[in-house]
Design a protein around this nucleic acid. Structure first.
Lengths: 212, 212
DNA sequence: GGCGAGATAGGGGAAAACCCTCAAGGGGCG
DNA sequence: CGCCCCTTGAGGGTTTTCCCCTATCTCGCC
């Protein structure tokens, strides 16, 4: 029997959640909170297995709640249940330590499945949230289709060496060309990629996940 | 009824998987493959909802299989099922486009749950894999504890501006100090962080997830 | 065959980055 | 009170970046 704390400031939503969860037979709601601060308090007092957290709550927003729970009650899993599926929220929540992220329009069966998943130590994210998270990690390989904007083969070699932290002189030696030529490759690269200097070039590489 | 393709080179494992899945009543195995290449072929021919992929397979390894499926049959979800829970594998798989990652010692009920999750467009990762993925995203906030190695407050300001791509002159203007002082700060920063130049500094920042 | 586009290679020169040294003023601390 | 570190600034040097220019070579295309 999974012990659950429900934190949501909308009474109707909260009570229907409690009803649905208790009726499922898979879990039991052991506490309710209508704002963030009391959610943290109750969690610490009740030690639930899973805390259902809404994003927007009075006194302490959902992100703060998740962050504090992750610190002070790490054995409890937090599952974010919300109407907002904006990228910002998802990332902040995951960074704060949320084990799952589900939209409120998800089916009850999915909610139950998500609760069971996070209680078991797994994670569960709705399609949209998953896409956002995957995008954070996936891009690197997908970006291989057209990785760096139209660089010539030779320029790509130079590009890699430069963002690896090599100086122009080292690049020149590595490529077996003169320092001047290496410098020129660099210039063309900066130009093509629309960056002003090495710092921005490495930033560009980092953004496109081309480092390492 | 979820249509499944099972790809695993160990016949015993594969056949027991097929038996278990068909017996569950939740899904049906529509094809089997004993190596990566035939997994891709069969997937293209059968258009399954979910492809169960082993990491190590002859002819084409699991990562390549996932990558190709993501490109050529994006509507099919791939669920990695493996004995290897190494960080490398997990990350590569997710980058390649896997929707889930589960260890072979997971319970059958969890496998079914995972299949249902990925078929519904969600993701499902086992505890270990989830930790690795979360670590990729979570660090930024956790790293705030002791972000950059012992820089003074002023140096941190400069550090941020530099890795943001600003030139020394711009840094100086932004901080309201002379160019010489800004240069000095930069030098001390490079020195303290043990890097040779701006490129390596930005790399350092990227590695510590201090960009943006 | 000629023509243009772009890759590759290189040079000159100004600007910026990089490196070392020095030094003055301010705080905190044993 | 010295001592250490942060911050600020400067001098003076070398190296690297960065921008403009040229020359060859290849490749596709009319």
């Amino acid at each position: 029997m999974i012990r659950i704390l429900v934190a949501d400031d909308h009474t109707i939503v909260r009570e229907s959640l409690v009803a649905v969860l208790n009726a499922s037979g898979e879990c039991r709601v052991v506490g309710e909170a209508a704002d963030g601060a009391s959610a943290v308090e109750q969690a610490l007092a009740l030690c639930p297995d899973v805390v259902l957290v809404d994003v927007s709550m009075p006194r302490l927003n959902g992100i703060e709640v998740v962050r504090r729970l992750a610190q002070e009650l790490p054995q409890a899993r937090t599952l974010v249940l919300t109407m907002h599926e904006e990228e910002e929220y998802v990332l902040h929540m995951v960074r704060a330590g949320a084990s799952g992220y589900l939209a409120k329009h998800a089916a009850t069966s999915e909610l139950i499945a998500a609760i069971k998943a996070v209680a078991a130590g797994n994670v569960h994210f709705g399609p949209y949230a998953a896409k956002i998270l995957a995008g954070q990690v996936q891009r690197p390989d997908h970006a291989l289709d057209d990785p760096y904007g139209a660089l010539s083969p030779r320029e790509r070699e130079a590009f890699h060496l430069i963002v690896d932290g090599l100086t122009t002189k080292e690049v020149a030696r590595k490529l077996g060309i003169s320092v001047k030529t290496a410098e020129n490759h660099r210039s063309r690269i900066l130009d093509k990629l629309g960056v002003r200097n090495t710092a921005e070039l490495v930033r560009y590489a980092a953004r496109k996940r081309l480092l390492h």
